[in-house]
Design a protein around this nucleic acid. Structure first.
Lengths: 343, 343
DNA sequence: TATCATATAGCAATCGCTTGCAGTGTAGCG
DNA sequence: CGCTACACTGCAAGCGATTGCTATATGATA
């Protein structure tokens, strides 16, 4: 229903060529009289002309390659965003280098009813993208089969839970290893009574980090007091609450592994409010290496995820798929420990 | 040079229609023999076929509307990102609601030579966007005149320095007011010896916040000791360094207004390392209300910018422009003070 | 007055893909 | 054996904008 060049041309009583030339300002060296120009501009404005980008691209022989990144549009948990920003930046850098533009689609994760999902999925398909990157913590089991069926290239950052023979291309970090590294570091510091505040256990990342913790404890031959595993949600508030719960315990654990920096920061607050000091009274390890982790008091020991690299690799895998270049179906990145003063 | 449908068709010895139908899988209910399907798939793979999205969009009569957001690709200052993330989210929400997709272009701000700029500008124009949003702290005086000349709809978040009769559409927050609010709050708390760590003074935001501080001091009839204005860069390290500089002063200021939360956090570190406490020894106000500001010890009093709103309004102004709907050329948003425990 | 340069504007082909409709071959049915 | 039905495949007309080339005024010049 949108007005086309022809509509404008008819209204201005000129040809479409003329309209095109006017609207593109001074594209060629063909001169156009001021009077005609005004008439065209006027007409274009009157019919509310908006160029059809697809047609323009086609005619101009410009290529136009887009990668669509699906990110969660979660209003509350703002603190988790540096992760996405960094991943997106990694994706964008790689894509831009190869001449692809990147579009972000914020999918509604707050109301995960199937209707909303359906709407989001439709809108995503309306985006003329060559490929799609699904970001982590996206419980999109609903999307995956359809993308597969629709034959649309995509890769997933983070992998699906029960996806043992992985049908999809993905890149992920080894969260299990991360949890183990954090715990082993605490063990090396001589701690035995090590508690953990877990992430969202419905997500593989949360689950895997917990299992890493458990594996390290078990390997050290140490028992895990049942009260030492307190569930969190990755958010600072849950870290705060979880820590208060741990502080009430007796004997009190001497060290805590928080499955996210956000929770670690919340935990710090709780510890300091209780008049205890870090790391003397309680040692603390986080996970993520958020930018602010280096600027807490004391600076936080944490497990660093190569977030930008995650994005870069996701983009590389996807572009390989899009251009039919052989590439491994999935890659798992190793996190590593950043030792600061909280342990 | 890319392979087209016709190339595939010739290779597979079928018509383009058949190829199209195969590649779109099961689009219509027209059946295709398995043998043909295989042959087509094979051929497509061999010539490395990649669909031309523009042509597809055009033929399918799908509209395809894009808004391009230019954001700085600054490797070092990761801490400033929550701002952009929030702004982008505001933009995306609004755009998506109106059926526009959003693409991010990370422009290189690290090497601001004109060659890089030129390359970036060209690439941006290659993106088939209906309009462009330039984010703040972008010193893009180079872009603006060209966008104007090329007749491309755009709005700027934050305004250009010497742009008194504003030629461009923009949305901004009142940084001057923000600086004044912060300082006045400190004055109300009874402080007289108030120092400030400024932002990057080459940016309007940095300059305006400083002027707000100065205005408040002057209005209170208080002198500003020359050493009390220490220059920073918005980054935490500069806050740390700036604070050390202030701590060495005697008499020492009793309150500090840091022109960004990031710097405030750096300053906190310096204060606590010096064995002083906040707010008893030194009161501290930040600017931005980063997510982590609520989780520092003590929680940081700060000036909140309506970042998401900034993005929303930028998008609204742009879409109005794109669709030729009348709208004000620019809007200025009011920041407000969030009082926590650091004052 | 004839010729020619110049300024404007239009014609029509083209970009690569989709899709309604028509065409062909084969099998099944009476 | 003739005819209908079905399974496939191809033809060709668009989709909306761009642009090289041609056509028409208009005035200047010889």
């Amino acid at each position: 229903m949108a007005a086309t060049l022809r509509d404008v041309a008819q209204r201005a009583r000129v040809s479409t060529s003329t309209v095109s030339r006017v609207l593109n300002n001074i594209s060629t060296n063909i001169p156009i009289s001021d009077e005609t120009r005004q008439r065209v501009l006027q007409a274009a404005h009157e019919v509310g002309y908006k160029p059809n980008m697809a047609a323009r691209q086609l005619a101009r022989q410009q290529s136009f390659d887009l990668i669509c990144v699906i990110v969660p549009h979660a209003s509350p948990s703002v603190l988790t965003h540096p992760f996405y920003m960094s991943v997106v930046q990694g994706i964008a850098r790689t894509c831009q280098q190869q001449g692809y533009a990147v579009t972000l689609y914020f999918a509604d994760t707050n109301t995960p009813d199937s209707q909303t999902r359906e709407r989001d999925y439709g809108r995503i398909l309306d985006i003329p993208a060559n490929g799609i990157i699904l970001t982590t913590t996206f419980r999109d089991e609903q999307y995956v089969p359809r993308l597969l069926a629709d034959n649309i290239p995509f890769v997933h950052i983070g992998h699906l839970s029960g996806d043992s023979p992985p049908a999809t291309h993905f890149v992920d970090v080894d969260n299990f290893l991360g949890g183990r590294l954090a715990t082993e570091h605490l063990l090396q510091k001589g701690h035995q009574d090590i508690a953990t505040i877990t992430g969202d256990l419905t997500m593989p990342a949360g689950q895997d980090r917990l299992e890493g913790y458990q594996a390290a404890m078990q390997q050290a031959g140490l028992p895990v007091h049942p009260g030492w595993i307190v569930p969190g949600t990755f958010d600072p508030d849950s870290g705060y609450a979880g820590m208060q719960q741990l502080l009430a315990l007796s004997p009190r654990p001497t060290a805590v592994f928080a499955a996210s920096d956000a929770m670690a920061i919340g935990a710090m607050q709780a510890i300091q409010e209780a008049g205890l000091t870090i790391p003397t009274d309680i040692a603390l390890v986080g996970f993520d290496d958020l930018p602010q982790a280096a600027h807490t008091t004391p600076p936080l020991t944490t497990v660093q995820q190569p977030t930008a690299r995650l994005g870069e690799i996701a983009a590389e895998l996807l572009l390989a798929q899009v251009t039919a270049v052989p590439a491994p179906p999935h890659i798992i990145l190793q996190p590593h420990l950043i030792i600061r003063d909280s342990t």
